[in-house]
Computed example of a mutant assay.
Amino acid sequence: KSIFFSFLFKYGTGGLIFFFSSSKASVHPDTGKIIPVFFRPPAFLPVTLPLVISSSLQLKAKQIFLCQFAFHVYTTGFTLLNGNCTTKDEENSLHQKQILLGVGAVSYASVLGAFPFFFMNRYTLKSPVTHLVVKRLLPAPLLGLMSAFTVVAVRSPEFENGIEVMDRNGKVVGVSKKAGEKAVKETALSRGILFGTTFFLPAALMHFVER
């Protein structure tokens, strides 16, 4: 982390791009393919956190939809490019099934994220309780849930086909569906918790400031 921030402080955006491009995470461990710069693990939080915070500060359904659409497009692309590859996946370099699932998941998650605000504005629900639920309480768990949902949707081939399991020496010893299921569950859970809590913090802070 100290290396990352020293690059950012000393060289600015150019140094940040160099840091990402020179990272060991630039090559996918399963396929050996080069991962695009802004979809590498070091870029994940610097890209996603501003999108989450920006989305949490919006009040109109259209603005929320656009922010969450951009967020889900990026996280889904990141998941697609960094997920484990199964034997069947390697036969199809374009991952057509995952791309199709990703498009559907992004669309669904973006619409659902903005729907409570659209519903409130459409039917002019202005009671304090409605505002509290729709603007303060509902968006954070909804974003967390949708973040987990997109992970499961895009990486579903991992628990359907299984992923390669290696021994301590890095030698492939077989393919396991349980390992694939565990990997997807852990990633989905971590994404849900990370972005759900991140989305909630600005809203909670503004609530206490307004009081």
Rank of each mutant, 00 (worst) to 15 (best):
N82A: 03
T79F: 07
A140P: 03
L201C: 06
K1G: 05
L112G: 10
G170P: 06
A183Q: 14
T13N: 14
A109E: 05
P141S: 15
P29Y: 02
L94P: 05
T150K: 01
V52N: 07
V47E: 12
R40F: 01
P141A: 15
L138W: 00
R168E: 15
P157F: 12
F4S: 04
K135H: 10
L81D: 09
T150Q: 11
V165N: 15
L59D: 15
T187W: 08
C85Y: 14
A203D: 15
K1R: 06
S93G: 09
D89I: 03
D89Y: 08
V173Q: 14
V103H: 06
L132T: 02
C67T: 09
E160F: 04
L142N: 06
L142F: 07
A105E: 07
Y123I: 06
L94C: 08
T13R: 13
F44L: 10
S22I: 00
S26L: 14
G12Q: 10
I193A: 08
H95N: 04
A183R: 04
E158D: 15
A114W: 03
V111N: 03
L142S: 04
F65D: 09
I3M: 12
S190Y: 13
L57Y: 12
L132C: 01
K126Q: 00
A188M: 00
L66H: 07
Y108F: 02
N92I: 03
L80H: 00
V106T: 03
L8N: 14
A70V: 01
F18I: 08
A153P: 02
S55V: 07
F5W: 02
T13F: 04
V165C: 15
S107P: 04
G14K: 15
P128A: 06
L125H: 03
R211C: 13
A109T: 03
A43G: 08
F159H: 10
F78P: 05
Q58P: 13
